[in-house]
């Protein structure tokens, strides 16, 4: 305690997060320049925005109250179409995913099968469902069939990949033990692999159903059927009160689905 006051420094600075000053400053200045440029290129057309403002107000006002009654029949049609689309594409997507997922697991499949299945997965993951939907509409014509194809392909990219990863991460000693009993390949899959991956896969399929419903609401915008098509029509006809009603219905169904899927996943695991 007898050390003189001056022996201890009286200032302290927090050491910087990035140690090298050159790197630090180039990151700071670089991001500043980028942000300036990016904001600069955002050509805000104020006149157009001012023009749009009353429209925006009208749109928000349309929520109070939304109009559920005028286009009720069309809305029901759209919603059911979306639900059917979500169910069928989930089922079909998963049915296709199982063999592909098995083939894409390194510990199960021979090398050439592995590569083939991985490239299928990679291919279907590359593009968003909506781009797939555009092409599906070109090929299959307008309507829910195109949406169904697009969502099924999306499901393969999601589900087969996770299934393959899950199989690759199984407990190898359990698999070995079954193999040691002299089980055949199918028996081995059935007794050693399936019990280990099943609970998570059931959970994921519910989750994917949830995703497919959400996506089914947008594939309609490019002609893939479902509630998205109804919504798009409502916007094009400036029927904002109907659009508001549709949006609320979508939000409602998504919330219900999210809660059920969360609950189901907990229950399965």
């Amino acid at each position: 305690m007898s050390v003189a006051e001056s022996d201890f420094p009286s200032s302290w600075k927090k050491p910087p997060f990035i140690k090298s000053p050159l790197l630090r400053w180039s990151i700071i200045i670089g991001s500043a320049i980028y942000l300036a440029l990016a904001f600069g290129t955002m050509d805000v057309d104020w006149e157009r925005a001012a023009e749009g403002l009353p429209r925006g107000k009208r749109f928000i006002a349309a929520f109070f109250p939304p109009n559920f009654s005028d286009n009720l029949g069309v809305m029901w049609d759209g919603i059911f179409e979306s639900i059917w689309m979500a169910i069928i594409s989930t089922v079909a997507g998963i049915a296709l995913s199982v063999p592909i997922g098995l083939g894409a697991a390194k510990n199960l499949a021979p090398n050439w099968v592995y590569l083939a299945c991985r490239s299928i997965i990679g291919g279907s993951r590359t593009f968003p469902e909506i781009i797939l939907a555009i092409f599906a509409v070109k090929l299959f014509g307008f309507g829910p069939f195109a949406g169904f194809v697009a969502l099924s392909i999306g499901t393969i990219g999601f589900y087969a990949k996770l299934l393959a990863e899950d199989i690759e991460n199984i407990n190898p000693s359990q698999a070995e033990a079954i193999k040691a009993t002299g089980a055949g390949w199918w028996q081995w899959i059935n007794y050693a692999i399936q019990p280990q991956v099943m609970p998570r896969m059931i959970g994921l399929s519910v989750y994917r159903l949830d995703i497919n419903f959400r996506e089914s609401a947008v594939v309609g915008i490019v002609g893939g059927g479902g509630i998205g098509a109804t919504l798009n029509t409502a916007f094009e006809r400036y029927e904002f009160d109907t659009a508001a009603a549709i949006l609320l219905i979508i939000i409602g169904i998504v919330m219900v689905l999210e809660y059920t899927s969360g609950y189901l996943r907990k229950w399965v695991q």
Binding site: E5, F8, P9, S10, S11, W12, K13, K14
Partner: peptide, 12 residues
């Protein structure tokens, strides 16, 4: 992090 000089000395 601008603490008084006295505090920083005491911390050291």
């Amino acid at each position: 992090r601008k603490f008084p000089k006295k505090d920083i000395q005491e911390a050291y």
